[in-house]
Design a protein around this nucleic acid. Structure first.
Lengths: 154, 154
DNA sequence: TATTGTTATACTCTATAACTATA
DNA sequence: TATAGTTATAGAGTATAACAATA
């Protein structure tokens, strides 16, 4: 059945790992601002949501709190993020990118996007529009409404 | 400039890691044959290239030899792959999936696809068609004509 | 000497459990 | 008691360097 959820799932399993591998490869080969994909995504989020709390970032990226805390440690050590106590609720931590963090993100973003764009340029514009639309749909169902945690259960 | 290669690249960078994380989660939460994505890919490759050497697998999956060696250790320990000396060239190791390995691969494929399909069922059919179309385009430009393409999609 | 793998070592990413500090 | 984060610990995945065995 065309367009069935199962068919769609199989197509995703076929294609996504390939694209992910290409992304990691591009980012690793871009020496100069050696950001991992997850750190990169943290910086992107903080760039648009300055002052976000640890929980908010963890929620957005779908990571457990301790994992995120440790990742932030690494970014703070490298002077890419600043941690600050929220005066209104002293349990909360507010996070923001430093100028260095923003620069590293921009640099990684541009280098990686440029490499990907090179490949995408071979497509007709309609193909790229289809991809953009699909990415937005996927982000909406795999990014938000994280019931993954409860689904894992444990 | 909607639909530009650059815009498209940025959307990909935003969405693909989210989907990849969901795939990993679902594979791990499928207790019984909890295969990581890389191990899953090794089994898929061996399923179609029985008797391949370590170097050949490492080459196809884009991993360093020691990484692959260690990963094969894990699969051998779990009785999913057999290592054998090549009598013709005793430096070489030939690898093949066991029946258990093949079964685990099938099972992981089906379970993961089913979980993804559950989420995708919430979309309108038109959204799923858009995703399918996008996945096919992405596989064609990021696939390099390699293994996962035909293997996973079966 | 060149090739094929393995061992040793280290770092990143991620998770769960136990804890601290604040509300 | 409930919430926000951190520390402790563990395990997978990956890399490089050094090594062993075979050609």
């Amino acid at each position: 059945m065309l367009g069935s959820p199962d068919e769609c799932a199989r197509q995703i399993l076929e294609a996504i790992p390939l694209v992910m591998r290409a992304i990691r490869h591009e980012m690793r080969s871009h020496r100069g601002s050696d950001l991992s994909v997850p750190k990169f995504r943290v910086l992107i989020f903080l760039n648009r949501h300055e002052g976000a709390s640890l929980s908010e970032i963890a929620e957005h990226l779908g990571l457990a709190l301790p994992s995120m805390s440790k990742m932030i440690d690494g970014l703070v050590t490298r002077n890419m993020v600043v941690r600050q106590m929220d005066p209104g609720d002293r349990r909360r931590v507010t996070l923001a990118p430093t100028p260095l963090g923003r620069a590293a993100m921009q640099s990684a973003l541009e280098a990686t996007a440029a490499r990907l764009a090179e490949r995408l340029a071979a497509l007709p514009a309609s193909g790229r529009c289809t991809i953009i639309e699909a990415m937005q749909i996927l982000a909406s169902i795999f990014g938000c409404g994280r019931d993954t945690k409860t689904a894992i259960g444990k």
